[in-house]
Design a protein around this nucleic acid. Structure first.
Lengths: 194, 194
DNA sequence: AATGTAAGTTAGTAAATACTAACTTTATGG
DNA sequence: CCATAAAGTTAGTATTTACTAACTTACATT
């Protein structure tokens, strides 16, 4: 298999294993078995386990920021963009459980360099959301009286809590409904003249 | 050392290691070293690693529910109780990082029995908070128009997000401030005639 | 056709890991 | 004072883990 495709496959498999078995359940042997290559072959593409994890974080970063950027162009109002981001995240949980596990529950905290990188990603993400809200305020689709930064943090907390509880429930759809209610109430507070 | 004290010590040490190095960084050897006993001695008190983890979850449960119960008697209004719970949690993060890591980021998700138990704990916790809000509504210290269940979930999401981000930041106090703002805004929405 | 490179293999290794067997120390109540 | 049980020790073991060396295959370029 071509190197770049193999690399992506390995990262994807790694995220899946973390999603299903946690970081403690991640081993080189499992990755190799899932990719249907030998363990040694993994080392042709990555320096080691840590290197794979670093690329996983890179992948997460790309996806998160990519989601925001694409929706920021497709949708018109701030509220529509935020709704899109929320839905993308919720859909994402079912497809690739590893991303939410790492990003929202940040299992990788322990290693200092990973913790710092994840923090930067989260803060960048919050900043992007804040920008969307500020833009909405400029064109008056979002109330001027609210704090954009605070709203951004509340928005992410809603996503995180929904993802966390949905995952913990063993993927019970009722919990998604309750997350949607939180979002609805939040979006309502964004409306102007409210 | 007396058995019950030793057991508590081992659980406490385990939670600390998870707090500092994550579940992937937890080993029997590290627990024994921290407790200054041999690895074999651990097995006089617990059946094995899983048994220790189960007792950790038990400890978390006790502490969480204990916090609510005690504050529920000390404080008078629902808003005062919720403020107390929030502050207790935030203070808790600095002292014992393992609890927030397990409970809010639920690193133990992977194992089915642990996941189920944690979910039950969280749902019980949410229910207790909901009860506090309902009681507040009865005596009109909390607005009648809000949904108690939804408010309880928002409350926990605020705690979770603050704990998550505070931990991820490497314990930056500014982030606690931002969490306090979220709480303040939330408590404001609880006020009657608002 | 020769050659070099990328992607893969087999077969191993040293270290770490969870756990156990067998023995020793310590303390306590009859 | 001594029997007993609890709490501890040393010294292991089988397995797992991340990683490496040495070799093979596939394939594109000169």
């Amino acid at each position: 298999m071509e190197s770049s495709r193999r690399k992506e496959q390995i990262i994807s498999i790694t995220l899946n294993i973390i999603g299903e078995q946690g970081l403690a359940g991640l081993t080189i042997a499992k990755i190799a078995k899932n990719a249907k290559i030998s363990e040694a072959a993994l080392y042709k593409h990555f320096k080691g386990k840590n290197d794979i994890l670093e690329h996983c974080i890179g992948m997460i970063e790309k996806r998160l920021i990519g989601t925001i950027r694409s929706l920021n162009k497709e949708e018109t109002t701030a509220i529509a963009i935020l709704t899109g981001i929320y839905n993308t995240h919720i859909n994402h949980i079912q497809v690739n459980k590893g991303v939410p596990r790492i990003i929202y529950t940040s299992e990788i905290h322990s290693q200092e360099n990973f913790r710092t990188r994840l923090f930067t990603i989260i803060e960048t993400y919050l900043h992007e959301i804040e920008e969307i809200i500020v833009e909405g305020q400029k064109v008056n689709t979002v109330s001027q009286v609210i704090s954009a930064g605070q709203a951004a943090r509340r928005f992410l907390s809603i996503i995180q809590f929904a993802a966390f509880r949905y995952s913990l429930s063993g993927f019970n759809m009722e919990i998604i409904e309750e997350g949607n209610e939180q979002l609805k109430e939040f979006l309502h507070t964004l409306e102007p003249t409210g």
